[in-house]
Design a protein around this nucleic acid. Structure first.
Lengths: 240, 240, 240, 240
DNA sequence: AATGAATGAGTATTCATTCAT
DNA sequence: AATGAATGAATACTCATTCAT
């Protein structure tokens, strides 16, 4: 078997694995099939990776690393700046902005971030699917998805927390805010990516419409966290 | 092997399967392990079920049937009644209520329904997990989760649509509303159930607190669909 | 595949394994070959044994157990009796007998024991071969052969030592005696069994002649341990 | 990978192979492991050796050649001289010496030879181990160890026989003597070397003590072949 | 002399399923 | 209804060897 194109064998193995893991799940994917799809000798897979699981680990880790750096970048460029200048105060229940101007700027930047994030997850939806699949099982990657949630918690090890904490000493994540963020922000995005193709096949929206619709709702959710919105969390107008 | 308790062998097989499928995923679960966990002879599994897949099918189908009848019941008892009496008009972007009284009644009933639904999915979270797991793969059950979305679409075959349509001839589901409902209502609940144990292990909330927090947010999302809320969908204040 | 004869499948697997391990060594024996030789389905081997190594373990352990019980039996019936009646005193360098009569009786019994032992090892020479093979490697059975040597050492756990010690309080194995016994008694017998077929093929002796010749030499070695023989161990006529 | 020391790659390959073959056996040794242990590229092994087996052959052959020349040297310098001068007559059952002086000289020289031989085999115990390991299998080297026995047989091709035969026309090896020599002289030495490390780990003797003990017993065995010893072979005092 | 990449044929082990009783 | 034994087809992984440079 020759170097068919410039894409190196190792690269082809990763691509084929991603596609197959994403389609059939890790367990149902056969190393044989990866070899065929990647057009390499089966043994070569073991030349580059210690085991089938090693391929999975590699992919999961790269994804998480990327997602986190994307988020950190946003916070660094936006939240930090607003807090430093006194335009934003993060309280347990809401984000409090100094004025409408600050709100507008935040919402605009949030939109940009969400657009960027959405594009990233849609592009990487195969790995996201794998990540979800594995996080639902009891194996090694059960907690992988929850690593994302860790970035919503207040630990010194959490770079996101630390970044905000450095400029806002009083800052604290409330449990309910974390839950809200996780189940109504992170997971919807992850789900959106994971079920993107399914959803598109089922619905009538185009790529662009689908993306925009989702973004709009994302902004709604985002807005609901801002003080002044009549949608409130705990101890507020809505009683259980 | 004797009848250790009154629980029949078939029942034990189903329980063991549910637990194992939920933990390790269908593919990674071995018929051998099911036999051991159910404390039955491996061959007996094939006496009760045609194949390993047959066990999965059985469980997925019973869950979906239950979830749908639960929802239909809610709609029958609430939505239908409100529409018939002219208190509610479902429009593409929002739910329009005749007065505050109607809103209050709706929100109260929605809360009851969500409580009921939440309890149901938490109790059946193992099967939900399996359902998610399988819906992420390309196999037979890939579309199982999307069957739920079908109940948000306007098809004569959809009993929910039909039920509402019977009392509101103009009624139509807008694409964006379906998307909103699916990604920000159904999927969060499904995810909540699927990740319930993981989330509890990671966070600090008790069963009750966790459930209440989630319900509160659920109400927020629900409220955002009601006209008068300042959170609006398409063609509204939030521009992309 | 049917029950071809009365010999059960498990038995056939063991026999085939013994033969193949003995011929080619454990590592060079293929589970496939065992299956063919035993005329069973390859998977059936894993029904009866956890792994290829498990078969080896089973065989090595049965052999050692048998050999030890054979030896214990001899000591119980002979040595113990002689010591109790004051006919034999085991000293660090030699066996001291009360009179020629005792020597004769001992030598006769030793001959019987050696005959029995020789027949046993020749019959089980395949496993002995395996045992030697494995004891030369660094794996799990490296020390298996040395378990035999343990029966020449003075430990309360050693049933042979204990048996003799019970009737002769002063009794002690000298290091040199153990070495002598091990390298010039046990190992020659083990080697004899292991190389039996090779030796026969190379030499001109019949089964009977070969066996008798070896026995005669065995007796010589045995006799050399008796006081009065002019062949002496440490601190004796032969100086280095 | 660079030339780490002056030891050439080929040398390092041989050393690594010897060690690994000796530890794990030929079959269980991987070419990969040899490459790592020798700190050379795997392909380089095939530059120096035709195949894995080729490495084994090389080592086995060098050992045997050395051992034989060592023995021939001893016979040339001692036995031949004694026979020529009429001091020694080799008969089927025993070595007959003309007088005590001749016996003493022989025993002294035998001791020297045994010391030399012992040092040689201990130093080369890794290869000896390999030789034993392979001689127990059915492969190409099954007969390697028996090549040593060939030097005890009366064939014109046997340089040892020829050397003695040249000075003692009546000389003949009796079958029983060959058996005695092989199982109670050659094999114990070979075994001693093969199990040297194991034995040392198990026992309490130092290198020096262990070597001396073994030598002493060797002399005992040697002495038992001399006429006048009361330990006799066939047709003698010990009857079966 | 040296090496990173590649490969065909295996190798132990597993697994869902079936059979005979 | 229940079971111990049996099986064909895989399955992940290995290994000695070769190739191209």
């Amino acid at each position: 078997m020759e170097h068919i194109s410039g894409i190196e064998a190792r690269e082809r193995i990763i691509n084929a694995s991603r596609q197959l893991f994403s389609q059939k799940g890790y367990d149902a994917t056969r190393v044989n099939d990866i070899a065929k799809a990647a057009n390499v000798n089966k043994a070569l897979i073991y030349y580059y990776f210690k085991s089938k699981e090693d391929i999975l680990d590699f992919m999961v880790n790269s994804l998480l690393d990327n997602a986190v750096s994307l988020t950190l970048d946003f916070i660094q460029k936006n939240i930090v700046h607003l807090i430093e200048n006194g335009y934003l105060d993060i309280r347990p229940d809401r984000l409090h902005f100094a004025n409408g101007e600050a709100v507008n700027q935040f919402m605009q930047n949030a939109l940009k971030f969400n657009e960027q994030l959405l594009d990233y997850v849609i592009e990487n939806r195969e790995i996201i699917r794998i990540l979800m699949l594995e996080s639902l099982k009891s194996g090694k990657h059960r907690k992988s998805l929850f690593r994302l949630m860790d970035y919503l918690s207040g630990s010194e090890k959490n770079p996101i927390y630390k970044t905000i904490s450095d400029v806002d000493r009083d800052f604290v994540f409330s449990d309910e805010m974390v839950l809200f963020e996780f189940f109504f922000s992170i997971l919807p995005i992850v789900n959106f990516a994971a079920y993107y193709d399914e959803y598109k096949a089922a619905g009538s929206l185009s790529d662009q419409e689908l993306r925009d619709s989702f973004l709009r709702v994302t902004q709604v959710i985002c807005a609901s966290m801002i003080s002044g919105s009549d949608i409130l969390l705990r101890n507020n107008s809505i009683k259980l």
